[in-house]
Design a protein around this nucleic acid. Sequence first.
DNA 1: CAGCGTCAGTAACACGAGTTACTGAACGAG
DNA 2: CTCGTTCAGTAACTCGTGTTACTGACGCTG
Lengths: 343, 343
Amino acid sequence: MESTRERPVTMADVARAAGVSRTTVSFVLNDRSGVNIPGTTRERILHAAEGLGYRRNAAAQALASQRSGLFGLVTEIVTSPFAADVIKGAQWRSWEDNRFLLIAPSENEQMMEAAAIEKLLEQRIEGLIIAASWHQAIEVPENAHQVPCVLVHCFDESGRLPSVVPDEESGGRAAAQELLAYGHREVAHITLPPGIPAQVGRLRGFGAELSAADVALPDQRIVAGDGTAESGYHGAAELLDGPNPPTAIFCGNDRMAMGAYDAIKERGLRIPHEISVVGFDDQQALADSLRPGLTTVALPFEEMGAAGVRKLTAMTTGSRDTSSHLALDCPLHRRSSVGFALR
Amino acid sequence: MESTRERPVTMADVARAAGVSRTTVSFVLNDRSGVNIPGTTRERILHAAEGLGYRRNAAAQALASQRSGLFGLVTEIVTSPFAADVIKGAQWRSWEDNRFLLIAPSENEQMMEAAAIEKLLEQRIEGLIIAASWHQAIEVPENAHQVPCVLVHCFDESGRLPSVVPDEESGGRAAAQELLAYGHREVAHITLPPGIPAQVGRLRGFGAELSAADVALPDQRIVAGDGTAESGYHGAAELLDGPNPPTAIFCGNDRMAMGAYDAIKERGLRIPHEISVVGFDDQQALADSLRPGLTTVALPFEEMGAAGVRKLTAMTTGSRDTSSHLALDCPLHRRSSVGFALR
DNA sequence: CAGCGTCAGTAACACGAGTTACTGAACGAG
DNA sequence: CTCGTTCAGTAACTCGTGTTACTGACGCTG
């Protein structure tokens, strides 16, 4: 039914209606300090704009001012269950900062990622966030450097780019504190693949807190896992069948905790009455559905997304921020897999 | 360290490097049919562009072509657990269509929503998706009409705007089919608030499928709930304590199913051995963590998001699409709360 | 060889705003 | 009365690309 899609109202229209020049309209609408426009004229212009239903054209503004008001976020949207939370946090923060967030998927092919960034650069984003699905060192695509860039849930080896990561150590400590609070002194750990930040940090924090309480964590109590449920199963089996089974197991992630549950139940032990389990990641779908519910340490995805944007904003507004590497706390989420130690 | 942020490469630069006019560059890069440029020139230009690292300026392009390549999505990002999936679907689809999706939060204050749309309009979005957190008729803000608009998980009373909603009836049917397949003939239903589309559709589908199998659903077997776990508890209690308890209960949503679980367990009945339960919504956190896992009907959020974008694309490219109201199937997600009927 | 058509490409304007450098009027001081 | 200063506002350029209307050269035909 719409025959003539009417031309949108421009500043020129407003100027005409208010009987001033377009420049003046621009000054008034941008509230430019240093230019004095008397209240009456100002009112007249604002009124005219209101009346005509004037709406700024962001594209024109971006072109003229050389600032798009856009941030970019590259992440694995589809495959990663975590991405949604990062997006949520970043999206919200951007909106609050009066900017839009452009999201581009990088289903983890290096080329694809560069292409995604390329498209974002075409949009003249003022800042870029690269978010990974697991805490790791990443190879930052060349073109990412053409704009202020923050890494979320990852970092670059060189340490040149600012990053926001989870404080894995704090998570490890939280796990230890919980177990200690329940009187456990015979504790064990099933690891992630060696060397990755998640493993190194989690274990360091866990170990440190135990040491502080004079609880030993001998090598026999640390068994190697690889992050899969299968490896969690075998790791737990090894611990339980050994000469000196622990009263609590801290698993490097929730999936391994799930495997551990199976090994534990197979042996007729009850969680948390006879043995306690703590996981890591707080994957809703897992932690909630396990029986009993898995007490686990959460990765602060939403906060990381928001912090990434905050950092970008700081960088683009030129405020010198010293803390270029940010590590956010990993809080414990209590469910029902930790009980009092029997021994 | 970056002293002089070098001016980005423009078409003019490419033109100069290739020894042609800017117009020609534009023609080549846009691959304009109807203009003939010999291969050699074309090569020369492309090579120059590549060499200089030319990158289109989206803002300038949008301004000149009057097309932004942007779609807008208004939804409750923060509060609604469903929004993430809609975003995921819409985001992915947009990317595939070579567009960007701008997301704006509407934490459900009518004014806020209009303001959000206003910001999107400033960006000259070519289409708008409004997504609701529950299936309902909504009051579409005035300004939404200034651009092609699709409603997702909601609709407007007048029916003027195209919409994508879940086919609640199909979900109701799926629930009934599952129960019938397990031999149930004494079934009951706990309702959502009367009149809302979710209730009307789900019950209609459920009832229709039962009728087709000559199974009655008398009024005493339909008890009123309001969507809360509390009401599910009371509803189930009423059914179980009645003169003629059912062998299966179809709950209007997962939260009520959760309440029903409690009432059932209180009475010493076992799910699914003595009584079966089917929910609706497939809220991961609930359905998974209930014991036993809740068999429930899923709302296809991701698909709705994608379908919304597809419809927008169709509308903006001017292809007349007849089906202006789309209803997507609600598939059953089997877990462990349905068993064979004893009677 | 005049006339016409195609080829290859260009000049010039548009898009809607931001921004700088300027102008005409009014006012006050000397 | 003149000069300088503020006030209020404008002309004109810029941003980078899309698009239309045009041009000059060349080849072919009758």
